[in-house]
Design a binder for these strands. Sequence first.
DNA 1: TTCATACTTCGATCATAGTCGAAGCATCGA
DNA 2: TCGATGCTTCGACTATGATCGAAGTATGAA
Lengths: 225, 225
Amino acid sequence: MKEGPNIAIIAALVGDPARANMLNALLGGTALTASELAAEAGVTLQTASSHLSKLQQACLVEQEQQGRHRYFRLAGNDVADVLEGLGALAARAGHLRVRPGPKDPAMRRARMCYDHLAGEFGVRMFDSLVGRKMLLVDKDSVEIAPRGAKFVTDFGVDLETVRSSRRPLCKKCLDWSERRSHLAGSLGAALLDRMFDLKWARREADGRVVRFTPTGEQKFAATFS
Amino acid sequence: MKEGPNIAIIAALVGDPARANMLNALLGGTALTASELAAEAGVTLQTASSHLSKLQQACLVEQEQQGRHRYFRLAGNDVADVLEGLGALAARAGHLRVRPGPKDPAMRRARMCYDHLAGEFGVRMFDSLVGRKMLLVDKDSVEIAPRGAKFVTDFGVDLETVRSSRRPLCKKCLDWSERRSHLAGSLGAALLDRMFDLKWARREADGRVVRFTPTGEQKFAATFS
DNA sequence: TTCATACTTCGATCATAGTCGAAGCATCGA
DNA sequence: TCGATGCTTCGACTATGATCGAAGTATGAA
């Protein structure tokens, strides 16, 4: 027997296709019911129930009961980080699933990455902020510059509140579809929330796609060029 | 079929106990032969060979041939990061393996974490650098301060060379045994190398334990108090 | 050239875990 | 109170992948 954490247990849990699909769906950032997760995973309710029980026992997901509905969500940012890290390794090795149809390009354009914006739009926003020196990048480290603080405040983000979060303000997150980074962290989440508030975009009723309205797309381009 | 990276494939590879043991051994930072990894995993050479082939095809490990010896190492920092993240999740869920014997406490005291120092000593070093404001921490972000630059230069680290690395200079790494952070990144690696050069410590011939000499321990305590 | 060592490949066996139909429990609405 | 809905539990069945003995290949030393 070896010493230290038994990573095989956690990895094996994630390694089942049905469970991985559920975790991937939960990376969308919203709580989902057991039935919804069963549908996402393509298994029956019985199978989904068994899987969710295991994920919960391993502290990967949390459950919240509302009447007869059981809502599940990822247990924390650290779980999301590991799942995203696994996604980056899978993408690098070529393990990418592509579903021909309207959703795949939509996923590449703009999607939820737990609580922030990913895809073309996410990478474009990040590149714009860095290019205009509002964010300063040194390898994996991302800091907000004073001009960036002013910019996001003008944009409508309450930077004080966002800073008070225990999470990192700015963080790089490798985008599996663009193979470059987008902005995670509490600021990344706040900027996306603001776009929802401004009605530039809305998340699709199901799934991880973020839809920009034509007006929202124009304003996004103007703001992050 | 879902869109995006197929994390189940990578996770399932890590999820087998034998393969997880090999990856864990490789987290020690040195290249290991197929025979050594078979021993670490507790399987025959045939089984190990099959596993290593899969890990290589998935770009989790790289192989280097020297004569009839096949040396394997982790494919990169990103693989190590994900493995460490899985370790943190496993530790949080209580999936810790403890082998009663001299090695477990030694592992907790000082061990390799891919290329930097982990365990009590690693956490103590980090806390000391932060407490003396040589490293500045803001959530997950770690920066070196001028006084820290001077300190590590005096300590014998060629900061210019270390900075030129494409890796982050300073990075937090969650220590599964101490449940706090130690210093990863190119600076973390350089500081440990320097301690090896100074003969304060040496890595054990096999495994991840780092042994400090009595003199080295005293000097470590004096330097990082 | 021969023998030893490191490792790979093949094929058969075995263990493990995922699956779902059926039944049961908890909650909500009529 | 009863029926509908969401979900859990049980038990049987099936699929998958890890395992190793045997044989083969590549490399190095004598």
